[in-house]
């Protein structure tokens, strides 16, 4: 009951959805529309509420116990409340000016700056990865440098660098990306089959 029934549900749903793909009938498409397109996001919404409840619970516990850095948990809760209140239907919903303000002047600057911080850390990563200690590391280095200097004005070398970069991107890079996509696709399919057939069960947790 605790473990077998979920495995049966996965097997039945998985096999059904695989076969459904090959049945060009309007009933099949109808089932696909609600079972695959509408229902999983609905379950996802309830999963999100679990996440929100967990966030509030962890933050509230931290505040009540005066744990280390508890003051920042107040900031988290205030941010959460401010955004949700701003998105209430009475204030204009998701397109309300208050939501837009928080998105434009709080979320966007922080996200963009956190990602831009990576340009500093990527420099040290590049030093470690690109030390030309072997042929393969040298290939990695040359390929990356060519791509990076592609748009730089390099005087008489501008044209040849640009053409070399185009060749790198359109020939060996294309081959690599295509092989990776095929490999990833086969990996996804084999993992999905393992899940549907009940070989992979780690998602069930213990007990």
């Amino acid at each position: 009951m605790k473990r077998q029934l979920p495995l049966i549900i996965i097997f039945v749903c998985g096999i059904f959805m695989v076969f459904q793909y090959f049945i060009p009938h309007e009933n099949s498409e109808f089932i696909y529309e609600f079972a695959a397109l509408d229902w999983p996001p609905i379950i996802g919404v309830f999963a999100l509420t679990l996440g929100i409840i967990s966030l509030v619970r962890v933050s509230a516990t931290k505040i009540s116990k005066r744990d280390e850095d508890w003051q920042y948990s107040i900031v988290t809760l205030l941010g959460l409340a401010a955004m949700i209140i701003a998105g209430l239907p009475w204030f204009g919903g998701q397109t309300s000016p208050a939501v837009k303000w928080q998105f434009d002047f709080i979320m966007r600057p922080i996200i963009a700056t956190i990602f831009s911080l990576l340009s500093f850390f990527i420099a040290s990563a590049a030093y470690r990865a690109f030390r030309a200690r072997s042929v393969l590391a040298s290939i990695l280095l040359i390929s990356a440098v060519i791509v990076m200097i592609r748009f730089m004005p390099l005087g008489p070398f501008t044209d040849i660098v640009s053409r070399t970069a185009d060749w790198v991107l359109n020939v060996p890079n294309l081959a690599a990306k295509r092989a990776i996509i095929i490999g990833v696709g086969l990996g996804i399919i084999s993992t999905a089959l393992k899940v549907v057939l009940g070989v992979e069960r780690s998602y069930l947790g213990r007990d």
Binding site: G79, M83, I84
Partner: peptide, 14 residues
């Protein structure tokens, strides 16, 4: 960082 976590979670709710 903490403000970002709260505001992002709220944004997803909306």
């Amino acid at each position: 960082e903490h403000l970002m976590v709260g505001v992002s979670a709220g944004y997803w709710v909306i």
